[in-house]
Structure formats: structure tokens, C-alpha cells
């Protein structure tokens, strides 16, 4: 039982996701953990922007506030003081932006903090396109945030899949088969796709199956980057699944 352990360092794979790196850094905020946080913020800026917009800020204000928010977030002191008990990056980001808006809503404050420092680049045009206020007018800011979060996550997975396909010279096949992931291809016959791609129907079925599995795996990997432990991955996906109604 109790045994004199030499207390060696655990394998490095215990803390290899971006959010665990950020959390593990604690007060010893390093360049490494800052990069991890920057990457996460770069992926999930759109939910923050949409949240700010739905809180009633104009396009310009929302851009400034979002920039200011990320600049503040990436400051060493701010992160060290952040509440990290919630476990998930999504919760952390949402509560942080709420606090920020409550305390830092003034545009001049935002500019003071964010002005001149572009922590997370935001493309104004695409930000508005992603926000799409006309589509779900009944959604509150939190709901919009969750929806945009799920969309950012899915977008990240598609982006990785496209990169893989491009690298493997399989872009044409990917574009043909992508619809089988999204429901867009309901009613499309495998044999028709097979004819277009010059493959057998069985080969198409295997590819579609593998593509779905690959999407699922990458999605779980992306979610894992934002949570504190592996057992939160499934719960997080389920949460988002029910949040995107």
C-alpha cells in the first residue's frame, strides 16, 4: 500500500490540451501558455463578438469591445485573477466577457486597453456575416454565444478536414462526400457519387463511413482542447447538442 514513490514526472500527455496548458500554468503565466490561450481565443472570437452585438452594441462598438476584451484577457494579471474553477474554456470565456462588459463597457476604456494592440484579429465583414442577427431574433445573448461557439467548433473541424484532404490530393472527393456529413445529401444515391468519382459503390460507403468517424474524432479532439479533463468531452458535446436547437 503506501509505498515510497520516487515521484517521477507524469507522462507529458496529462497536460497537452490548450486549456489544460493554460490552467496548469497558473500564476506562472508563460509564453507557452499565452500562445495556447491566444490560439483558443483566435478560434472562438466569433461567439464573443456575437454576444457583444446581441447585447445591443453597434458594429463598431462590438469590434472595439471584442478587441479590448481579448487584449485584457491576454494580459498576465487578468488571466491569473480569472475564475478557473468552472473547468471549461467556454464557461470561462462567457463569464469573462460578461464581467468585462459590466466593468469595461465604455468604449474609450476599451480603446485604451485594446487600442493599438491587436490581440486577436477580427475581420469586421465576416464578424457581421457570422453574427446574422436576422436569423434567430428570439435568441438571447447567451444562446447566440452557444450557437456561435458550436459553429466555430464545427468550422475548425471542417478546416482540419479540408487541410487533410488537400494534403492527400483528395479535395474533389471531399467536396462530393461532405454533404453526407451535414444532411445536405439526404436522398443522394451512393452509386451516383461513385460514378462521378470513378469508384465502386462499396468504396464510397466505406469512405463516407470513415469521413463521419473522422469528423466525430476531430470534433472530440477540438472539444478536448477546451475542457479540463477527458471525461468532460462527451458532456460538453451533449451540452452544445441540446443548446443549438
Amino acid at each position: 500500500m503506501p509505498h515510497d514513490s520516487s515521484k517521477p514526472n507524469p507522462p507529458r500527455w496529462f497536460a497537452t490540451t490548450r486549456w489544460t496548458i493554460v490552467l496548469a500554468a497558473g500564476d506562472r503565466h508563460s509564453q507557452y501558455s499565452r500562445q495556447a490561450l491566444e490560439t483558443l481565443c483566435g478560434t472562438y472570437w466569433a461567439p464573443v463578438y456575437s454576444f457583444v452585438r446581441r447585447r445591443g452594441h453597434s458594429v463598431e462598438e462590438a469590434q472595439d469591445l471584442t478587441q479590448g476584451f481579448f487584449a485584457r484577457l491576454l494580459e498576465k494579471e487578468s488571466l491569473a485573477a480569472a475564475d478557473r474553477q468552472r473547468g471549461k474554456f467556454r464557461n470561462f470565456l462567457l463569464s469573462s466577457v460578461k464581467n468585462y462588459l459590466a466593468n469595461e463597457w465604455d468604449r474609450s476604456q476599451a480603446q485604451k486597453r485594446g487600442g493599438g494592440t491587436i490581440a486577436v484579429p477580427i475581420d469586421a465583414e465576416s464578424a457581421e456575416r457570422i453574427y446574422r442577427p436576422d436569423q434567430v431574433p428570439q435568441d438571447n445573448p447567451e444562446k447566440i454565444f452557444e450557437r456561435r461557439w458550436a459553429a466555430a467548433l464545427v468550422g475548425q473541424v471542417f478546416s482540419r478536414m479540408r487541410q487533410d484532404a488537400r494534403r492527400a490530393g483528395q479535395m474533389k472527393a471531399f467536396e462530393h462526400l461532405k454533404g453526407f456529413l451535414t444532411g445536405e445529401a439526404v436522398g443522394v444515391r451512393y452509386q451516383d457519387v461513385a460514378a462521378e468519382l470513378g469508384l465502386s459503390e462499396a468504396a464510397i460507403k466505406v469512405r463516407v463511413h470513415r469521413l463521419r468517424r473522422r469528423f466525430g474524432d476531430l470534433l472530440r479532439q477540438e472539444v478536448a482542447q477546451t475542457v479540463q479533463s477527458p471525461d468532460q468531452v462527451e458532456a460538453e458535446i451533449r451540452y452544445l447538442f441540446s443548446a443549438v436547437e
Binding site: 434567430v136 450557437r147 456529413l181 451512393y190 463511413h209 447538442f241
Partner: peptide
């Protein structure tokens, strides 16, 4: 599920992360 125009069905895509649907082309 109601869709947002120009956007893929997030529901179907997130379902893939949960190993759904349980039927497959195979």
C-alpha cells in the same frame, strides 16, 4: 432541426461527435 440559412446543420454535425447516427452506410 430548424436551420440558420447558409449554415450546416449543427445538430447533425455535433451528433457525429457522439457517435450518432447508429446506422452507417456500411
Amino acid at each position: 432541426t430548424p436551420l440558420t440559412e447558409g449554415e450546416d446543420c449543427l445538430h447533425c454535425l455535433l451528433a457525429l461527435g457522439m457517435g450518432l447516427p447508429d446506422s452507417t452506410p456500411l
